[in-house]
Design a binder for these strands. Sequence first.
DNA 1: TTAGATGCAAATAGTTTGCATTTGT
DNA 2: ACAAATGCAAACTATTTGCATCTAA
Lengths: 143, 143
Amino acid sequence: MSEIEELSPRAVRLREAGHKLTNARLTVLNVLENHDGHLTSAEVLEQVDQIDPSIGRASVFRTLDLLTSLSIIRPTYMNSSMTPTYVLMPDGHHHHIVCTNCNRIIEFENCGLSAIAAELEERLHVKLTGHLLEFYGLCDKCS
Amino acid sequence: MSEIEELSPRAVRLREAGHKLTNARLTVLNVLENHDGHLTSAEVLEQVDQIDPSIGRASVFRTLDLLTSLSIIRPTYMNSSMTPTYVLMPDGHHHHIVCTNCNRIIEFENCGLSAIAAELEERLHVKLTGHLLEFYGLCDKCS
DNA sequence: TTAGATGCAAATAGTTTGCATTTGT
DNA sequence: ACAAATGCAAACTATTTGCATCTAA
């Protein structure tokens, strides 16, 4: 690492969990953050390769797995089958609408789930740390 | 088709959407219904093969895609990376808790999202038909 | 009868692994 | 200094495709 860069809070989380801040990891994180999530592994691979072709595919996958295991990202399924889409989990939660016709993603804030989460924690004796909420339907252009 | 069997409501939906009720399709549907969803494609392949080894892999995948496109099932991501898990969407929605430690799935009813959905439809001019809600956290045994 | 679906096997992704080398801390 | 992480390329898995055949409607 030759340059001194701003470390994103997520990079700090990585380091605090005892992992090294390598070029490969910071680049992957950077790509995800610059695209606000919703990237397939293929897209991450491509972006990373564009920024630094010396980074190997394997490291990208290893980083995605690592970030997933730390709940920094969450793999999700959008379209039909195949590739997952990696979603950043800013505060441990994420929600969006997927248009089942054009596959557009519409983000929205305030999902109002905290009450539901609290009730579930109480009733089922679980400890919830995050959630993913996807609505499916038709967007304004497709309805 | 030699036997007269009860057609599940989902099979009826398939037929009403203009698709043939073939042995391969009915078998896949059967497997999913008997396991209440949460099967990976590999598990579906295995079960189908056990029931009728003459059904080809390709047809299983084609059926999973078809069921997905009809919103009868929804691919979802549970553990780290790789294979999706197919979840039945009984009434167009599904919700569960994933234990991030032991990967146990805890189902629950009544997610109380209809009010939120209605509000979003109004505000964003979308038409919502279903949703998937996943909570992440620790189950009672892991907390 | 016939468009739609199938099974097969080969082709194509997509992801992981082993290992010698490099790099953060 | 040294455990942790890397890049490479080969091995593996998982999924898709093309096509002749079959079958539900």
